[in-house]
Amino acid sequence: MTVKVGVASNHLIHPIPRFDVNFVDYIQRDYIDGLRQADALPLVLPLGDPKDAKAYIEQVDALVLSGGQGVTPVLYGDEPIKEVAETDIYRDQFEIALVKAAVKAHKPVLGICRGEQIINVALGGTLFQDIYKQMGAAGKHNQFPTSWEIPTQHVTTTDGSWLNQILGERFLVNTFHHQAIHQLGENLKSVAESDDHVVEAIESQDGNIIGVQFHPEMMFKTHPEFAKVFDYFVDRVRAGS
């Protein structure tokens, strides 16, 4: 069967030289390539009104949420601190609506980096706005200027978790973030941590929702083991259809 996976888009909110004020919706090609190599059919969902989320989810078998801006703190009950960089409440509200619609429809969800954070907020959880300021993280969680496909930090997985099953107990990942999960959302559990205790992966109690804080889509072409993240997700969608 053809597995149709909706991939929520990002959008430009500032003029840039290439597009000026032509504010395009877009998704990085790596997410699409990751799903295609897993024999899924990616369908990009343009950023829209939250009221349209149910209709979008009805057209797909599963949902992927990508990286990008920080999540707006007021959406999880916090006032922004000075370390918060760009946020986009329009994207936040739409993606939260997509998550809720997918959960209600019992359709699998995969969140990557910001996507993991949005899942957590959609399910009632909170975030550290800045892991250095608020939790005293000691590691370098934004590896720039090191190239994005190079794994730079270790994570340790929970025995028996989905990530443990496909990648093992301990391995290197890439990292590009300063926000992270604080209090877990409803029915979510942490299944991987960095050495300084940042949540690096999640799973719902029923296994239908998974997320990672790192970027497998950036690594799988040079480190093929990370294709297993997409393979696992698409296989789960196929098994539940």
Rank of each mutant, 00 (worst) to 15 (best):
C113Y: 07
L41R: 00
G211S: 09
I81Q: 13
A192W: 12
I96R: 04
I13L: 09
Y76F: 15
K82I: 08
D235P: 05
Y26A: 13
A192P: 13
D61W: 01
I57D: 05
L63F: 04
D39E: 13
D25P: 00
K140C: 04
L188S: 12
T175S: 15
I209P: 04
H11P: 07
E79P: 04
V103T: 12
A239R: 14
R29C: 03
A53K: 05
P73N: 03
T146S: 08
T2S: 15
D231M: 00
K221E: 15
R170C: 10
D25I: 02
D25W: 03
F176R: 06
F94A: 06
Q129Y: 01
I131P: 13
T126H: 05
P151K: 09
D196G: 10
N10S: 15
S241E: 04
Q183M: 12
A122G: 01
L65V: 13
A227D: 00
G185Y: 13
E169G: 14
S204H: 08
F128Q: 08
D25Y: 06
H106N: 10
M219D: 10
T2N: 12
V121M: 01
A239T: 11
Y232E: 14
I131Q: 14
H223W: 02
A40F: 03
I131R: 12
L127F: 10
Q183T: 15
P73L: 03
N120R: 12
H154I: 04
D206E: 14
P151G: 07
Q69L: 14
V237A: 00
F171H: 00
L167V: 04
G70E: 15
D61F: 04
V199W: 02
W148I: 04
D231H: 00
D235S: 10
E193Y: 07
D49M: 11
D195N: 13
H141Y: 05
G160K: 00
G125M: 07
Q69T: 15
K228T: 10
M218V: 10
T156Y: 13
A101D: 00
H11Q: 13
Y31A: 04
S194C: 09
D130E: 06
Q213N: 11
L47N: 15
D206K: 09
M135S: 15
A53R: 05
S190Q: 12
D39W: 08
L172F: 15
K82V: 08
I166R: 01
Q117D: 05
N10T: 13
Y90W: 07
I27F: 07
G111F: 05
Y76N: 14
V234N: 00
I150P: 09
D231V: 01
K4T: 09
P42H: 02
A227M: 06
V109F: 00
V199I: 15
S161C: 00
V84H: 07
V7H: 05
I202D: 03
P46Y: 03
A180N: 10
V3D: 02
K51A: 14
P42L: 02
D231F: 01
V99Y: 00
H197Y: 09
G70Q: 06
K100R: 15
W148Y: 06
G70T: 07
D30W: 11
W148V: 06
G160S: 07
Y132L: 05
T72Y: 00
F128M: 10
K51W: 04
S190T: 13
Q37V: 10
G77Y: 13
I210F: 09
E86Q: 11
Q183A: 15
D231L: 01
W148K: 05
H178W: 01
A85R: 13
N164P: 07
G6N: 03
V198F: 06
V121I: 02
W148F: 05
A201L: 07
I119Q: 05
